[in-house]
Amino acid sequence: MRGSVVLLTVFVVGLLGGCGETVDTAKQTFPRSTVPAGEGGDRTGATGTPKTNDPAFSNDKLRKLEPCGLLTDDILAAVGTPADSETEDFGDCSNYMKDKDGKDLSVTLYVGETINGAEGADENIGGLPALDSELDDGSACFVNAITSTNPNIGLRVQVGGEGDDLCGTGRTVLTGVVDLIREDPPTREEKTGSIASVDPCSLLDAAALKTAIGGAETEMAPYTLHWCNWIGETVAAGVWFRTGYDPKDDTVDPGQPVDLGNGLTVYQTAETDSGASCRLEWRHRSTGSDGDDEIIEVDFDNSSPPAGDNGCATAIEIAKLLVPALPKP
């Protein structure tokens, strides 16, 4: 599971851009940029001008995809010998396999990620603007295809191993994934009350959120299709839908139980070393599979809080706004 967001980073280092050249780091929010050319909606082949905002790759459609259904044996066999794919989150899937030389090869697909540095997309993968970046030591490559703009969202394949051309491997896999989404997209089985295909950005009323955070002006900034942030000058709020273990069973970093009302208990963790930062977590829906429950996380950060304020009262107010808008499990 990827680390939980620390929104105060936004205030400490500013809104940063980049190419995502770090493996499995904590989420951050980055500035919006636009793809300078090729924006539109017409489908073109990989030999034409790549286009973003193709209806086949709308955010709503991407949320409904089954990510491990996209890492098919046929696609992975083009770069080696596949193992069993493992679901990592609503939009993530990994396969720890062997390349054609029998060396270890890890392939992780992220569906609906923020694509940083998209203005430098100078490749064409399946008709989508694309770019890649490789770690300095050559141990991993990140291949990205931009599906929509403002903000830039897309598909990412992260490839790790000892092979000589990890970026080429990633491009081969991502090409297969893009083609499959166009031709026969595998969708997840929708369960009653699931948040898997819900847009977290759509659930909080802007005026009510502004009131809850003390009147501060914020800008909506989706990070992934399952994670939405609202960023202001000194405050930030976030809602993240993910999978994981029930927070009440956490023995490593247990949160303080808080009764939110109507029988809902959330688990609260606060940090005040630099400003105020509060995280609330709770299980929305049990899947019956260990470690794969549907989890909701609400974060609130304030870089200039009033004395004695840890941010949790505000986080609770945000959670109370969110709960009535959630699908009922």
Rank of each mutant, 00 (worst) to 15 (best):
L155E: 11
N95C: 07
E119K: 11
K328A: 15
K98Q: 11
G48M: 01
K210M: 06
D136Q: 12
G112T: 00
K103W: 07
T218W: 13
P329L: 08
S58P: 01
G161K: 00
G176I: 06
G168N: 05
L131G: 00
W282S: 14
E134N: 15
D89C: 06
C19I: 11
A196E: 07
Y96L: 14
D301L: 03
G291P: 02
P327V: 06
D199R: 01
V107P: 11
I316Y: 02
L62M: 06
K248D: 09
L65E: 08
A37W: 04
G41S: 10
T234M: 07
L204Y: 05
L128H: 05
V178E: 08
P31C: 12
K210Y: 00
D74N: 03
E294W: 14
V323R: 04
G214P: 10
F142W: 10
S286H: 05
W282N: 14
A77H: 13
R32W: 12
T287L: 03
A206G: 09
I318T: 04
V159G: 00
Q28Y: 12
L203I: 06
L260N: 01
G288S: 12
D164T: 15
D74A: 10
H226Y: 14
L76Q: 01
K100R: 10
N53A: 08
T269K: 10
L105W: 02
L321E: 05
L109E: 09
L70H: 02
P200S: 09
W227E: 15
Y223R: 15
E88R: 12
G91F: 01
R188I: 08
S94Y: 07
V5F: 14
R63P: 05
R43L: 11
V23G: 07
S4Q: 15
V177G: 11
V159R: 06
G238W: 01
M220F: 10
S148Q: 09
